[in-house]
Design a protein around this nucleic acid. Structure first.
Length: 618
DNA sequence: CTAGGGTTAG
């Protein structure tokens, strides 16, 4: 009889574990009653845990179940409830439960402290966390408990008290790989990869999670080459990369933006247990990567092959279409998404709105903006207002854009004023540019781009006195111009880099000659240098010379020389492509019959047969 | 039971 009961208990627990919805749980609960097991702490603890995971408010169902236990002396039972409050709050209730448990004469246990630390961490309450910390010391016997100390480190990290976390770590008598990894991640998140690396080097037995923390850390801190180095080292150690590791590496490849790396990691992913068609995470990461590498077709291939899609997959694909100027595809996909179970979130709407912006679809964008809260329950953030300011402003409705910014329900951020400044620059409106930049100089005093946009807007209006006033400001602030830089992929996947007026490339002679030839042929079809692209008060000949030295033109010339005639020329630039270069790219695609893709710091331009996917709207 | 996670705008 006893044996039978035990078997039934563990059977019910495992059934509970597999419950994915409330209805099933309720069925099992009825079964528990029928078998007279509603006093069994083991089963009831599991029941409470499952309910919490399914986001049932602790106050309702779980508490009811708990209260039906006549003599709750099992600390696991109490802790299950406390963990529920740890996830959703309120924090005070978690502590009230802990106090009641002690009054019931139940001694403190390590996992109860862990639950309390989790609660403090989730509430970002370091003060309360420190009180629990003091409790563990006061009660005694927990100072050397590895598990308690690890959750304590985690709590301090979540609260942003890295120093306290480090102190706990330094004073621990025994540490395991979890303790180390927690700190490594904490340093990585603050951008301190030096300390992260130092800790990692001191770690004797490194497991896959620790390695992955380094891959992800370097990827998140914009050091993609380092991230990939660690990814390869991890594999050389004989460890199998899992989903999380792959995502870190894929994100690093996305940052590099080169097809060589993209195809390399794609291969690894396809041959892993987490192939993109089956893993939503890996699939979504690949969509983003291919979009950022200029290959939106391949991004869509991955998307189409995925067996399951979630809000990340859809949002990434929509944003991918948007940055490649495929606005209609983006919006179509958005409506397709609305027919599924997947609900759009704030990121989805950013993608849809940028798609409208990049295609100049003002009315469509306004409609989406107006309905996002009403119909889909997603309240616009300042970023969405930035998109709207961009949408209206670029389309030439500067007054409307300004009005929107001045009446928006939250404080405009740098993105909002920046969009307005960008639009003022395009439409050569120094008055609106002045309003926008006065805010930007407060919000982002060191962002040189804003000063340059204002100064260039003055230049386009011929207000040279104002130009030199802004120039002086830049000098006083000791700000340095970001040198323009372009890369182009050669045949073998090698990436060649060019700065403006750069003569360091070994084949610079041929490159210059190829550029001259191209210019001659362009002139034949009516090209004239766009002198207004040069914001300096200098002679026309000097302007022409500066234009010809732009890094993207050098990269284009090298692309013509160094790649197969049938292939796409892929150029990347760290700044926004200038108008003259844009015209030249259009012409070059017509004359040479080559497909040219340029990624500037804003988006992708696909040049084919004399036209650009951005419809000259950028 | 505690550690590593993806989309975003000027």
């Amino acid at each position: 009889m006893v044996l039978h009961r035990k078997a039934l208990e563990s059977q019910l627990v495992s059934v509970l574990q597999g419950c994915t919805n409330l209805k099933k749980v309720k069925e099992v609960h009825a079964h528990i009653y029928r078998n007279d097991l509603h006093q069994c702490s083991y089963v009831i603890t599991k029941l409470i845990r499952v309910l919490t995971v399914l986001h049932v408010p602790v106050e309702s169902y779980p508490r009811l179940v708990f209260s039906q236990v006549q003599n709750p002396i099992n600390p696991f039972l109490w802790t299950a409830l406390v963990r529920g409050y740890a996830l959703k709050g309120p924090l005070s209730e978690a502590f009230r439960l802990y106090a009641s448990m002690r009054t019931e004469g139940i001694g403190p246990v390590s996992f109860m402290f862990s639950a309390l630390f989790t609660a403090c961490g989730a509430a970002r309450d370091a003060t309360l966390g420190a009180q629990v910390h003091a409790q563990t010391v006061l009660v005694g016997g927990f100072e050397s408990d590895l598990y308690v100390n690890n959750t304590m480190i985690n709590m301090y990290v979540k609260c942003g008290s890295l120093h306290c976390a480090r102190k706990v770590f330094d004073e621990m008598s025994e540490r395991d790989v979890v303790s180390w990894t927690e700190l490594i991640v904490a340093y990585a998140k603050t951008g301190d990869m030096g300390s992260a690396q130092e800790l990692f080097d001191g770690l004797n037995v490194k497991d896959m999670v620790a390695w992955t923390a380094m891959v992800t850390g370097y990827a998140q801190n914009a050091m993609p080459k380092k991230a990939l180095e660690f990814f390869e080292r991890l594999q050389n150690e004989g460890m199998e990369a899992d989903e999380v590791t792959l995502i870190g590496a894929i994100s690093a490849c996305a940052q590099l933006g080169a097809s060589k790396y993209a195809n390399w990691i794609r291969d690894i992913a396809e041959n892993s247990r987490f192939e993109p068609a089956k893993s939503v995470l890996v699939g979504s990461a690949l969509i983003d990567m291919y979009s950022k590498c200029g290959n939106v077709e391949e991004a869509h291939n991955v998307f189409a092959r995925m067996k399951q899609r979630n809000v990340f997959s859809y949002s990434s694909m929509i944003a991918g279409f948007a940055m490649h100027g495929r606005a209609h595809a983006a919006i179509e996909l958005f409506y397709e998404m609305l027919k599924t179970e997947t609900k759009p979130n704030h990121v989805t709407f950013l993608g849809v709105l940028t798609a409208c912006t990049h295609a100049g679809m003002v009315e469509q964008g306004q409609r989406v903006f107006e309905t996002m809260e009403k119909c889909y329950g997603v309240a616009p953030t300042a970023d969405h207002y930035a998109c709207m300011a961009d949408l209206l402003g670029r389309a030439g409705h500067l007054e409307k854009a300004l009005q929107l910014v001045q009446t928006m329900p939250m404080e405009p951020n740098g993105g909002v004023w920046g969009a307005l400044l960008g639009a003022s620059h395009i439409h050569k409106n120094p008055d609106v540019a002045e309003v926008a930049s006065s805010h930007l100089f407060d919000l982002e005093p060191d962002n040189i781009g804003n000063y340059l946009l204002l100064s260039n807007t003055y230049a386009s209006a011929g207000r040279w006195d104002d130009v030199s006033r802004v120039r002086k400001l830049i000098k006083e602030k000791n700000l340095r111009k970001n040198p323009g830089c372009s890369w182009v992929e050669a045949k073998n996947g090698m990436v060649h880099e060019f700065f403006a007026d750069d003569a360091t490339h070994p084949e610079i002679g041929e490159i210059k000659k190829a550029l001259d030839d191209l210019m001659e042929r362009l002139k034949g079809i009516g090209y004239q240098p766009n002198l207004s692209s040069v914001p300096y008060d200098i002679g026309d000949e000097e302007k022409k010379r500066l234009l010809m030295a732009h890094s993207e033109k050098l990269a284009l010339a090298y692309g013509l020389l160094g790649t197969d005639p049938g292939s796409t020329i892929k150029i990347m630039k760290n700044l926004r492509i200038c108008e003259d270069c844009h015209i030249v790219m259009c012409g070059a695609s017509k004359i040479t019959g080559r497909k040219i893709v340029v990624r500037d710091n804003m988006r992708f331009h696909h040049f084919l047969n004399g036209a650009c996917s951005c419809s000259n709207f950028w």
